[in-house]
Amino acid sequence: MENTQSNSANPRMDLNFRRKKNAEDMKFQVIAFALTIFLTLVAFVAVGYDGFSHWFIVPFILLLAVVQVGFQLYYFMHMSHKGHEAVAFFLYSGSLVGAITILTFVTIVWL
């Protein structure tokens, strides 16, 4: 069964193109990593520093976490690439069910 993608008639040129493309992907991944580390530092500093109120810090660090996870999913896990439509559907369906579960537990469970 012919399942492999065909490379072009000129393998050498094809190789150079792919190398360049992979290197470019890598560049974005390193940038995403730097931003991830930066957001993590901001979150830890916000908690370590005494001046902010609880009502500011909690939503703020949750927002940082969501942004950071976005970097992980779209750059590290390649969701920004083509052919990830079904993948996005799976993941967002799971997230929706998860979000409803969390909402339910924090609002109607008390001890």
């Binding site: 799976f90 993941l91 799971g94 069910v97 969390i102 339910t104 537990f105």
Partner: peptide, 18 residues
């Protein structure tokens, strides 16, 4: 991984409630 998301979300929900 979509299923794992639900699984971890339910553990997070339990943790937040307790």
């Amino acid at each position: 991984l979509g299923g794992e998301t639900v699984l971890f979300a339910s553990l997070f929900a339990t943790y937040l409630a307790l």
